[in-house]
Write a protein that binds this DNA or RNA. Structure first.
Lengths: 225, 225
DNA sequence: CTACTATACGGAGGCACCCTCCGCTTTGCA
DNA sequence: TGCAAAGCGGAGGGTGCCTCCGTATAGTAG
């Protein structure tokens, strides 16, 4: 994560805002629809996005605790009052960031479904997932702590991830590039394990990448070649 | 946990103070000796004990986070400055409470070794352990987070627990009251699981007790009777 | 294009917490 | 009994949380 936040560097179009009237070309399952609401004013939406971006960046840098909401507001160049209007509690900000990240992964998966090499696509998605995990790690810990695993948000996020990954995986398998006996849930768990393991060598992303490489090797069908 | 703190209700003699010159009748392995230091003045020691007791009580009530150090000082009827002198960081207070609890369990085990029924003794110790867990839970989470599982304190605590439990278990096994194939480490893990599970029905101790009962049933040799 | 109002902005301010610093008190020894 | 050394404790500066309300602005109706 270099600066502004978001999943990779996409910027612009990404997936944000909680309840934007008629976004444009929906098509994704979306966590969004759960919280339908009147459309936001343009400035409100701008600030909302800024806050999410700032929060994502800071969480990735230093974890979800040890960050003052006021710092996030400062980084987003927004008044503290604005932050509290959009996110009445610390938790709601956490949830929003989490959902935003998951939606980013969903969009990425959709895009990668038309990529040239299904296997490379799968690998890229997994890398993004692990990368995302760097934020998610402390984030989900904090979340789970707060909402006591009842929240519908968390489970619907898991479903979205499983679906996204499932599509990529199936395509790679149909192309004969990945073993048939691998399941999406397994892969998700493995990615999760990687996230945790990467935490050990905190900060050193290369470790996670190396492990991911090993994982991909293991997935290969290795038919001819 | 009713009021003042400590493991059960023993009060007085328990195990506290970090580096008390010549306490009296040592005999326990002790986490203590690690941090040798000049003896404390009487008032210092008194305040130290009060702080530990107050902290233990509050942690048991509300967990290790969400507690201001100032409240602990107030409860101990001690100035905030005194708290900070004894425990320069939040972590050091956490560690001290933890060690104190473990030492309490160690003493309890020693006492129970001469109890009439080895099996009842084992059960009682396990109950105390789970009870203690109510503090330990959030406490050890906070600790592990802070000191990143390197700390020698944590592992020596685990060793003490294993040894204490081991002695009780062995006695119960020799008396033929508990199955031979149970190991101390297993029991410790089970107790830990109980602690976590009890967290689900937070606050309701009876649940934990019920589960403990089931566990003890499972341990029984069930030879005759 | 102008006027108007619902919506949103933003920061001052009240409260709690963290931690430090230092003048005052107590202890324990000679 | 006297006197350091050790300990006490709270005022105070810094920061974070969250609320409240006067001001600014987007979007709409005329």
């Amino acid at each position: 994560m270099t600066g502004t936040g978001r999943l990779t560097q996409s910027e612009g179009s990404g997936g944000s805002s909680p309840r934007a009237g008629t976004p444009a070309g929906s098509g994704v399952t979306s966590l969004r629809n759960i919280t339908a609401a009147p459309p936001m004013r343009a400035d409100a939406r701008r600030n909302y996005d800024r806050l999410i971006a700032a929060a994502t960046a800071v969480f990735a840098e230093r974890g979800a605790d040890d960050v003052s909401l006021e710092e996030i507001a400062r980084r987003a160049e927004v008044g503290i009052g604005t932050l509290y209007r959009h996110f009445p509690s610390r938790q709601s900000l956490l949830e929003a960031v989490y959902a935003d990240q998951v939606e980013g992964l969903e969009l990425l998966a959709a895009k990668l479904l038309t990529a040239e090499s299904p296997k490379a696509a799968l690998a890229e998605w997994l890398r993004a997932m692990v990368q995302f995990g760097r934020t998610k790690r402390s984030l989900s810990a904090a979340l789970v702590e707060m909402i006591g695993k009842e929240s519908e948000l968390l489970s619907s996020c898991a479903a979205v991830l499983r679906t996204s990954l499932g599509a990529l995986l199936e395509r790679a398998q149909q192309a004969g590039e990945v073993r048939q006996d691998v399941q999406a849930a397994d892969l998700l768990r493995l990615a999760h394990a990687l996230i945790l393991a990467a935490d050990w060598y905190a900060g050193d992303t290369s470790q996670a990448d190396r492990m991911l490489g090993l994982l991909m090797d293991g997935l290969t069908t290795r038919p001819a070649d």
